[in-house]
Computed example of a mutant assay.
Amino acid sequence: MATEQLADSVAEPPRGGVPQEPPRPLDAIDRHILRLLQEDGRASVRSVAERVHVSRANAYARINRLIEDGIIRGFTARVDHERSGQGASAYITLKIVQNTWRTVREQLLTLPGVAHIALVSGDFDVLLLVHTADNRSLRELVLTRIQAIPEVLSSRTLLVFEETDLVVDG
C-alpha cells in the first residue's frame, strides 16, 4: 500500500490563512484528528482514518474542512535547534512605544532566528522566542538589531537552558 502524505493530498489554506466565516464547531473526531496531526503532520489520511475509526473519505473531508476553516494553518517540521546548529535559545521581552505594535512586528519579522512573536499584556508588550547559533549571535541580535528599532524602549533576555515541545491536547 502506498503511503500518501497529507501535504500532497489536501487543499491549501485560504489566502492569508484567515477564513471568511467563523469556523464550524469541532467534535471529538475533529479534535482527535488535530491531536494526531500535531504528533505527526506527515501521517497519511489512511492512518488518520484508521486511528479515529472513520472512513478514509470522511477523514479526508474533515482534514480539508479544518484547513479551509483556518483551524489547521499548515504543516511543519519540529526542529531540534541545538542539533541544527542553533545552540542558543532565548525569550526576549520588549517594552515598546504605545500604538507601534504593527510597525515593530514588521521589523521583528525580518530578524534572523525569530521563531515566535506575541503581543502580550503585563509588564512588557512583546514576547519573542529566538534561536541563534551561540550566545555571541544572540548578543548581536539583541544589542545590534532589536535595540536599534526606534520603537523598542527596553528589552530583557531570558536564556533557555532546556526545551520540551508539547503536543497541545484538544
Score class of each variant (00 low, 15 high):
Thr110Gln: 15
Ala43Trp: 08
Gly41Pro: 03
Gly87Leu: 12
Gln86Val: 05
Glu82Gln: 10
Glu162Arg: 15
Asp123Gly: 05
Ser154Trp: 07
Val10Ala: 03
Phe124Arg: 06
Val114His: 02
Leu153His: 01
Pro25Glu: 07
Asp80Phe: 08
Arg31Met: 13
Pro112Thr: 06
Glu82Pro: 03
Leu34Lys: 00
Gln5Asn: 14
Val167Arg: 03
His116Ile: 02
Asp165Ala: 07
Arg46Glu: 07
Ala115Asn: 13
Phe75Cys: 11
Val18Pro: 00
Ala61Val: 10
Thr144Cys: 11
Leu141Arg: 02
Pro25Lys: 05
Asp123Pro: 04
Val126Tyr: 04
His116Gln: 14
Leu141Gln: 01
Thr157Tyr: 11
Gly17His: 05
Arg102Gly: 10
Ala115Ser: 14
Ile63His: 08
Asp123Lys: 08
Asp69Phe: 03
Pro22His: 08
Ser89His: 04
Ile149Asn: 09
Val126Phe: 11
Gln107Gly: 10
Leu119Ser: 15
Leu127Cys: 14
Met1Gln: 11
Leu138Val: 11
His131Asp: 09
Thr132Met: 09
Ser137Ala: 13
Val18Thr: 02
Asp169Phe: 10
Asn64Val: 02
Val54Lys: 04
Met1Asn: 04
Asp80Leu: 09
Gly87Gln: 12
Ile72Ala: 13
Gly74Glu: 09
Val10Met: 00
Ala57His: 12
Arg73Cys: 14
Lys95Phe: 02
Arg56Ser: 00
Arg24Val: 03
Pro112Trp: 04
Arg15Gln: 15
Arg51Tyr: 12
Gln107Ala: 15
Glu162Cys: 11
Val120His: 04
Pro22Trp: 07
Ile146Val: 07
Arg46Lys: 12
Ile96Gln: 02
Leu129Glu: 04
Leu143Thr: 09
Gln147Met: 08
Leu26Asp: 07
Asp8Asn: 10
His131Tyr: 02
Asn64Ser: 13
Glu21Tyr: 06
Arg65Ile: 04
Val45Pro: 06
Val168Glu: 12
Glu163Leu: 01
Asp134Met: 00
Arg35Phe: 11
Leu129Phe: 03
Leu159His: 00
Leu26Asn: 06
Arg35Thr: 14
Val142Tyr: 06
Ser154Lys: 09
His32Phe: 14
Gln86Met: 10
Ala11Gly: 05
Val18Asn: 03
Asp134Glu: 05
Pro25Gln: 05
Val126Gly: 09
Ile117Lys: 00
Pro112Ala: 09
Leu26His: 10
Asp80His: 02
Pro25Met: 11
Pro13Gln: 06
Ala28Ile: 09
Leu6Glu: 04
His81Val: 13
Ala90Arg: 04
Leu94Met: 13
Val18Glu: 02
Leu158Met: 07
Asp134Leu: 03
Arg35Gln: 06
Leu159Pro: 07
Leu141Phe: 01
Gly41Arg: 01
Ser154Val: 04
Thr76Tyr: 00
Glu140Ile: 03
Ser155Ile: 03
Ser84Ala: 14
Arg56Leu: 07
Ala88Val: 13
Leu94Gln: 09
Ala57Ser: 15
Thr100Ser: 03
Asp134Lys: 07
Lys95Asn: 15
Ser47Trp: 00
Met1Asp: 08
Leu109Arg: 13
Thr157Pro: 07
Gln5Lys: 15
Ala11Gln: 14
Val120Ala: 08
Arg62Trp: 13
Val97Ala: 15
Arg73Leu: 12
Val48Met: 11
